[in-house]
Nucleic acid binder design. Structure first.
Length: 832
RNA sequence: GCGGCGGUGGCGGAACUGGUAUACGCGAUGGAUUCAAAAUCCAUUGCUCGCAAGGGCAUGUGGGUUCGAUUCCCACCCGCCGCACCA
């Protein structure tokens, strides 16, 4: 008997799959396409190729592959492609450090990823692969950009933007975390620059509404996106400064507190600020204040609970509800880019306004009473709860929520306000002053302005350059031959746009390119998209909860509206896998606690590595890597292998096992196999309970070992063993496809991936006898074995007859008898 | 502060709609095999009292509902993640 040698088994099958192109699937209209077969699009987030794959990749693709295999064997035509998100900062920063061109390092890494994916035996349709840094791909990224530009969804404007001084580029809001660059951790600065944006805000409401279109997304991801979009309902109300002759609209979520406004605050960046104070005593202090705010970092300014600062403007505005003149201030707690950059301050009912009023000794007025019975502490000002209106003119006595509607209606009638909705979401800043990205296909002409590069001249190829170092403008600006061009419209001398696109643009549509990756006329055909979309199961890390997943949703909606795809949501089901740690800590090279997948695969085999990451625990939660755990899984696979060898040698026929006339241990092991089929199938369908699927197969293998020696000498027994072993292979195949293929071939001569997922025989799930637990007052006192279907009365009588039960009934009176057929008996007693 | 997730043996984790808590794996202990070791196989393994039969206690804490609660309800403690001066 030979030892379990994963390497030779795995290489054998990997060669078969590669030679035959086993996982390639046809598009509609192509050879072999079967219109009656239901499709399933199983997709894992494409990797960013940098160095070698790590265990996080191993987990993500193991989980995705298990789903792909399971769906295939349940009759689906599964499309399961793979590609590379190969533009991006790390490759470029590496180039600056080492002088190695980003393309060279990137392609080397892609080769390494390709090799490992093959070694892991992931069932990928390689005929559809792509890499976002290739002109064949970014040609279409540019094409989509131009469609957006033509629709007014991509535009260029001057705006205060977030700038990372280390990476020397602007960043999207989504890429600034706690005031720092998401990539390098440097504190970002605000700069006023001309930049390119996608109009994500135009889709704010639909990004919220279309959550209803999704089948299954983790609740917390939806919550995070909702928070990010940040919808608030309220009203826009106009406060007029008569002396300055300016109307100041404000956004408020609390129009019911209008009568409590005692002052008015505008943001330091407010465009009217300078004019308001010019030539007055306030001019100098205001200028000083604005300068001091400008020196602060966004993070400092954003800190909650920091003392309120500000400067009075010596001006007033009129409160439209009561005609009161209230003083104006400038203060940094009001932000220019939310609402209108101005707020009415209601210190009685808003904590921030309250803090400001205290600092500047401004009047604080209560306009909503605390309802009766409110604890004194909660009723104190600032009071943010609901209650009847007071000191609010004709609205006195009305519940504030009702008054809210009435006040808004009244303002609308007077022309001084109206209902309004505000979103926190801002437009997606997509331009980057960096080299390693897709060039923005625009030409700047003195005569014609911004001119899109005609579609037949795409792609605008990235030129080769010598110096990748950023200098505050794109390194592309130095490539003069490339920059200087002619205007596509008038033919005059013109200059190319030198910014490149954020890499998140590349990854916002890649799932569509897979569907038709060789199309040279279009990014993808509508037909291919209609057939395969939406992605039925998307798998990746939570770190993309708002970045990639929000952008891709926006792209899908925009492409839908332009008529390129039929769906509005790209990913019907989302699964986010948890992170694998080592000794409780995040793995990192600097900590030296990384686990190298290639080493694990070399030592224990890909099947063991893959099965282990699915067995560690529920895959949506994180897990701590344990070398001994992989060994345990390897041991389990070895046991399956040895049982196979022994049974194959003895010559059992799985196909001979037909059913119910089986007896004894033979029946037991076959019944266990059916139990495992049932359990595995249910757990697979219930989501991602892979750990319990693996456990069920382990139990089956343990059962095979328990009965093996007793059955192997008998022909019928051998058949039963063979059936159980074939079943174990069949069920473990989504996790350990190589060993499963080998076992299946040895025992049946067939190919496992072409075999249907097994079905449990309901007859074999039943047992003749059941164990009934006997409890007295909820405590287990004995167990009895009864024939299935035994009458309640009989069970009860048997239960009471148990020696240990009788002992506990002595001196007590039975007050209640509960009999759950097939499960238990509980006798409730009290002292007699 | 707001939102989400979680707390079960020495460890990772099971337990479907309230019904045998601790499946499966790791680790540990003992045995078989071996000249020996590795590998393998078998057995034991929540804590605790008891020679045993058997008993008591255990799913973060405290209450509640129930014949019966890891599961449902209320209050709290701890951990992780996300958001946070958004008017």
């Amino acid at each position: 008997m030979t030892r379990y040698e994963p390497r030779s088994i795995e290489e054998k099958w990997q060669r078969v799959w590669a030679d035959e192109g086993t996982w390639e699937v046809p598009n509609p209209g192509e050879d072999g396409f079967d219109p009656d077969k239901p499709k399933a699009y199983v997709l894992e987030m494409l990797p960013y190729p940098s160095g070698e794959p790590h265990v996080g990749h191993l987990k993500c693709y193991s989980v995705g592959d298990a789903i792909a295999h399971f769906r295939r064997r349940n009759g689906f035509e599964v499309i399961h492609p793979m590609g590379y998100d190969s533009f991006g900062l790390p490759a470029e920063n590496n180039a600056i450090k080492t002088g190695v061109a980003p393309a060279v390092a990137t392609e080397k890494s892609i080769a390494s990823f390709n090799r490992q994916f093959a070694e892991w035996g992931i069932s990928i349709d390689w005929s559809r692969t792509l890499a976002t840094h290739t002109p064949e791909y970014y040609r279409w990224t540019q094409w989509i950009f131009l469609q957006m530009f033509n629709e007014g969804l991509a535009y260029r404007t001057q705006a205060p933007v977030q700038w990372c001084p280390k990476d020397a580029t602007v960043l999207a809001n989504e890429q600034v975390v706690d005031g720092r660059c998401e990539r390098c951790g440097t504190e970002v600065e605000t700069r006023n620059l001309r930049q390119w944006f996608f109009k994500t805000t135009a889709y704010a409401q639909r990004l919220l509404d279309d959550f209803d279109e999704l089948e299954s997304w983790p609740e917390h991801v939806i919550t995070m996106q909702k928070n990010w979009i940040g919808r608030s309902e309220g009203a826009e109300v106009t406060f007029r400064s008569e002396e300055a002759g300016i109307d100041f609209p404000v956004f408020t979520t609390r129009p019911d507190t209008l009568f409590g406004a005692t002052f008015f605050v505008i943001a330091p960046e407010h465009p009217e600020l300078e004019g308001l104070v010019a030539g007055t005593d306030a001019e100098e202090p205001v200028r000083e204040y604005v300068n001091s705010v400008a020196r602060e970092s966004l993070q400092e300014r954003g800190d909650e609970g920091r003392p309120k600062t500000g400067v009075p403007l010596g001006r007033t505005v009129t409160n439209p509800v009561n005609g009161e003149e209230i003083p104006m201030f400038v203060a940094d707690y009001v932000l220019m880019d939310y609402g209108t950059g101005a707020v009415m301050a209601v210190p009685g009912h808003d904590e921030r306004d309250f803090a400001f009023a205290k600092t500047f000794d401004l009047p604080i007025r209560r306009v909503i009473a605390a309802p009766e019975g409110t604890p004194e502490e909660e009723a104190e000002l600032p009071f943010t709860g609901d209650g009847p209106m007071v000191d609010s003119g004709r609205f006195d006595g009305i519940q504030n929520r009702e008054a809210y509607e009435q006040i808004v209606a009244w303002l609308a009638e007077e022309g001084r306000g109206d209902k309004s909705i505000n979103y926190r979401l801002r437009d997606w800043l997509l331009s980057r002053q960096r080299y390693w990205g897709a060039p923005i296909p625009i030409v700047h002409c003195d005569e014609c302005g911004m001119v899109p590069v005609p579609e037949d001249r795409l792609p605008v190829e990235l030129p080769e350059i010598e110096d990748y170092a950023p200098k505050g403008k794109s390194p592309l600006a130095a490539a003069e031959d490339w920059v200087n061009t002619t205007c596509p419209s008038c033919g005059a001398a013109a200059k190319r746009e030198t910014d490149t696109m954020d890499t998140f643009v590349d990854s916002s549509w890649y799932f569509l390119r897979y569907l038709d990756s060789k199309n040279s006329e279009m990014p993808f055909s509508r037909e291919a998209a209609d057939h395969w979309m939406a992605v039925d199961q998307y798998i990746g890390g939570v770190e993309h909860a708002i970045l990639h997943l929000l952008y891709a949703r926006f792209f899908a909606k925009a492409l839908h509206d332009m008529g390129h795809i039929g769906v509005v949501e790209p990913f019907a089901n989302l699964f986010t896998q948890g992170m694998i740690t080592r000794d409780g800590a995040k793995m990192s090279k600097s900590k030296g606690n990384t686990v190298s997948p290639s080493e694990i695969v070399a030592r224990h085999g890909a099947d063991a590595a893959r099965t282990y990451v699915c067995f560690m625990g529920p895959p949506d939660r994180g897990g701590d890597w344990n070398d001994e755990g992989v060994e345990g899984v390897h041991r389990f696979l070895s046991r399956l292998w040895r049982a196979t060898e022994e049974i194959a040698e003895a010559g059992g026929e799985a196909g001979n096992v037909t059913g119910t006339e089986l007896q004894g241990e033979g029946r037991a092991v076959v019944a266990k196999a059916h139990w495992a089929i049932d359990k595995a199938t249910r757990d697979f369908s219930r989501g991602f309970q892979f750990n319990t699927v693996v456990a069920a197969v382990m139990e089956l293998v343990n059962e095979i070992y328990r009965v093996k020696d007793g059955l192997i000498g008998d022909e019928n027994g051998r058949d039963c063993l063979s059936f159980a072993t074939v079943t174990a292979a069949s069920l473990i195949q989504p996790f350990a496809p190589h060993l499963a293929a080998e076992v299946y071939e040895k025992l049946t001569g067939e190919r496992i991936w072409e075999a249907a997922w097994p079905e449990a025989d309901p007859e074999m799930l039943k047992s003749d006898t059941v164990t009934i637990v006997v409890q007295v007052n909820g405590k287990v006192r004995d167990r009895i074995e009864v024939a299935d279907g035994t009458e309640k009365d009989e069970i009860l009588a048997m239960a009471k007859a148990c020696e240990n039960v009788a002992k506990h009934l002595e001196g007590f009176e039975i007050v209640k008898e509960i009999v759950v057929p097939g499960k238990l008996v509980n006798l409730a007693v009290k002292p007699a």
